[in-house]
Simulated scan of single mutants.
Amino acid sequence: RAYVEEKIYKKESVSRFFYRGAFFRYERPQAGREREFHQIGVEVLGYAHPFIDAEIIMLGDLILKSLGLQNYSLELGSVGCFKDREKFREFIRKELAQIQEELCADCQRRVVKNPLRIFDCKVEKCKKIASKLPSLLDALCERCGKHFETVSEILNSMGVKHHQHPHLVRGIDYYTSITFEFQHKSLGAQNTLLAGGRYDQLVEEMGGPSIPACGFALGMERILLALEEEGKLPEVKDGIEVFVCYISEKELPYAFSLLTALRKEGISGEMDYTRKSIKSQLKRADKRKAKLSLILGEEEVKKGEVTVRDMRSGEQFAVKKDEVVNFLRERLKK
């Protein structure tokens, strides 16, 4: 909507976006489908070439691999153009009309409203019936069929393993042509980690011109569940690495500059601004589970040194300010 309202298509012929944030579901929450969830998405508007579909899919694969995930598969499908879908919809409606009573209550309504949604049903008896229905891929027109096969060939040439799914419709009706899902093998019914496809009519439906588009979204909570299943959740560090203490207000600027320098070097740190005694500051450091404390007084400032206290052993070391980062790194490894 923002793309249409801001008329971004007039400013550039091709647009690439990514977003992240919290979202909310209207329907009843389930395992893996919380009321509030967090999503990261990627969108490309302006390209109709199958290579951009492949690029988007490969980006999704790269993200999952970079997180260390392995136990997932890529399902590749196509819902064709609107004409393909309408023909297939009528054909499926006739097929299902003969066995409508065997379907769940939701799918019985879907037979009338949108029979393709049966392919997205999670009820076991409906899944069995749907698996025996004709393939959407066999109903594609020449143009949509060629697009699908080209994307599949590109993925094969780049070593991206995938399965050509005969009934991958996704849960949103605006998709056209390519659809895809990265599914994890250990998450049960809600097993989709990352999914998307092409939606060439969406911009026009929102009031803009006809502009091809494709993209995907990944669910951060699902990703965390998958990482947990594979035993690859990163270790959450408890506490901080360094607490910076200072004796008086005179040393505060020196202490503050040191804390800033440590953070720039990737060392987590903290300090107190309530003018407490060194003893109280060290108690605060201990409460924050700091591994090391830096003590700065008048003498340290004059000498350009820092007193480093190991909070575990109680040992103290006088270290030159320009050597403190390297000293801390070595000490934190122990």
Results as ranks from 00 to 15, higher is better:
His184Leu: 02
His184Met: 05
Ser186Tyr: 08
Ser186Ala: 15
Leu187Met: 13
Gly188Thr: 01
Gly188Leu: 01
Ala189Phe: 10
Ala189Cys: 12
Ala189Glu: 13
Gln190Ala: 11
Gln190Tyr: 09
Asn191Glu: 11
Asn191Val: 12
Thr192Pro: 05
Leu193Cys: 07
Leu194Gly: 06
Leu194Glu: 04
Ala195Trp: 12
Gly196Val: 07
Gly197Val: 04
Arg198Ala: 08
Tyr199Pro: 08
Asp200Tyr: 13
Asp200Glu: 10
Asp200Leu: 03
Asp200Val: 02
Leu202His: 01
Val203Pro: 02
Val203Phe: 03
Val203Thr: 00
Val203Leu: 09
Val203His: 00
Glu204Tyr: 12
Glu205Asn: 12
Glu205Gln: 14
Met206Pro: 12
Met206Arg: 15
Met206Ser: 10
Gly207Lys: 04
Gly207Cys: 06
Gly207Ser: 01
Gly207Ala: 05
Ser210Cys: 08
Ser210Lys: 15
Pro212His: 06
Ala213Arg: 01
Cys214Lys: 01
Cys214Asp: 00
Gly215Met: 03
Gly215Val: 02
Phe216Gly: 02
Ala217Cys: 07
Leu218Met: 15
Met220Gly: 03
Arg222Pro: 00
Ile223Met: 07
Ile223Val: 14
Leu224His: 00
Leu224Asn: 00
Leu224Lys: 03
Leu224Trp: 00
Leu224Gly: 00
Ala226Glu: 07
Leu227Asn: 03
Glu228Phe: 08
Glu228Ala: 09
Glu228Gly: 09
Glu229Met: 13
Glu230Ile: 09
Gly231His: 05
Gly231Ala: 03
Lys232Tyr: 03
Leu233Asp: 06
Pro234Ala: 04
Lys237Cys: 03
Asp238Gly: 00
Asp238Ser: 13
Val242Asp: 04
Val242Tyr: 08
Val242Gly: 05
Val242Met: 09
Phe243Leu: 11
Phe243Asn: 11
Val244Glu: 01
Cys245Phe: 10
Ile247Leu: 14
Ile247Ala: 14
Ser248Lys: 13
Ser248Gln: 08
Glu249Thr: 09
Lys250Trp: 04
Glu251Cys: 11
Glu251Leu: 07
Leu252Tyr: 15
Leu252Ser: 10
Pro253Trp: 04
Pro253Phe: 10
Tyr254Gly: 05
Phe256Leu: 15
Leu258Phe: 14
Leu258Ala: 09
Leu258Trp: 09
Leu258Arg: 06
Thr260Glu: 11
Ala261Lys: 15
Ala261Arg: 14
Leu262Glu: 04
Leu262Asp: 04
Leu262Met: 13
Leu262Trp: 07
Arg263Pro: 07
Arg263Asn: 08
Lys264Trp: 06
Lys264Ala: 00
Glu265Pro: 11
Ile267Asp: 02
Ile267Met: 06
Ile267Trp: 03
Ser268Gln: 08
